[in-house]
Amino acid sequence: MTRRLEPETRRAEIIAHTRAMIAEGRAHGISLRAVARQCGMSTPGLMHHFPDLSELLDVVLREREDEHAAEIAAALRKAHPNPSLLDLADVSVRFYADRPQETRNYDAFEAEAYSPHHPAHRYFTGSAVRPWELTVSLAAQDYPNPEAVVRVLALVVDGLRSRWLREEDPDYWGDWVEVRDAVFATFRHL
């Protein structure tokens, strides 16, 4: 029997269960039915809150992105009163390195979503992808061509994430330290 919950409480529960499924690596072939089962409800009941899987995943991924951005910004402010783009990059890598299994599972989910038929495809390849405002403002503060800096930094991070996904036991921090000084040295010349 389905528990009776207020609509916002039920919606939050659906989002939390979906996030956990992805974080725990249980999202391969994700479906509304699988999420509904995880929530102890029927698929039509879940569809009352999220009419399709793409909409649910957009909300889940955006919420996670916003939550992580806030946590990283707070850690950055705590560690660096006048942060640079390098400080932000270091804090971000540490943040995700401290969550290796979740990071790896979300990265695997994103890789799977590059298939045009995946319900999260639109989120990862469409207009939903946005550069983080703090990244852009710190790049503008530190470098003459901030747009190029943000583009190159995104390419480097994407390459590292791909590498970490392929490795059995990735060294997030060690790999980052290995490339960061060379990457940041080039930014003044962009």
Score class of each variant (00 low, 15 high):
L53W: 00
E67K: 15
V183R: 02
Q101I: 15
E55W: 02
T2N: 08
R104W: 06
R64S: 07
I14Q: 01
R188L: 08
A79E: 15
E112S: 11
L46T: 11
P116M: 09
Q101T: 15
T125C: 05
M21D: 00
Q141G: 10
R104F: 10
F124R: 10
P83F: 06
R122L: 02
Q141P: 05
E55D: 10
E55G: 08
F95P: 06
A89L: 04
G40I: 15
P44L: 09
A111M: 13
P131W: 04
A27Y: 01
S31N: 08
R180A: 13
P144R: 11
T103C: 09
L138I: 15
L155F: 03
A182E: 06
Y114K: 12
D66A: 15
G40M: 13
A97K: 11
V150A: 02
S84V: 13
T18E: 00
Y96Q: 07
P81T: 07
Q101R: 15
A12Q: 05
F124C: 05
T43P: 05
V177I: 14
E110N: 09
A89S: 15
H49Y: 14
S42D: 06
E55R: 12
L56Q: 05
N82L: 15
F109H: 01
Y123G: 01
E168F: 04
R4V: 10
P83D: 08
W164H: 07
L46W: 03
S42V: 12
W173M: 12
D58E: 05
E102L: 10
A111F: 06
D175W: 07
R3M: 08
G40W: 12
R37T: 11
R4S: 08
D171H: 10
T125D: 00
R10N: 01
H117V: 12
R99S: 07
S162K: 12
L165N: 05
A148G: 09
M1S: 10
M1I: 08
S92K: 04
E102M: 14
L61M: 14
E24W: 00
D98R: 14
D158Q: 10
V60L: 03
V152E: 03
W164F: 11
V129K: 13
L153W: 04
L160T: 00
W164S: 03
L134N: 00
G25P: 03
R188S: 08
W164M: 11
Y114L: 13
P144F: 06
L86T: 08
R99E: 01
E147Q: 14
P146Q: 05
Y96N: 00
A185M: 05
R33C: 04
V129N: 03
V136M: 09
R94Q: 14
S42W: 06
E167R: 11
A97Q: 12
H117Y: 12
I22H: 00
D87C: 14
A120E: 00
H118N: 09
H80D: 01
E65L: 13
F124P: 06
G45P: 06
Y114F: 15
E168M: 09
I14K: 07
F124D: 03
I14H: 00
E102R: 15
N145M: 10
G174Y: 13
G40V: 13
V156C: 08
K78V: 09
R26C: 07
E13W: 04
R180D: 02
L160R: 04
R77D: 11
G126V: 08
P116E: 08
R163I: 14
E6R: 13
Q141F: 04
N82C: 14
Y143G: 01
R122T: 06
R166P: 05
A139V: 05
T103I: 06
E13V: 06
D66T: 15
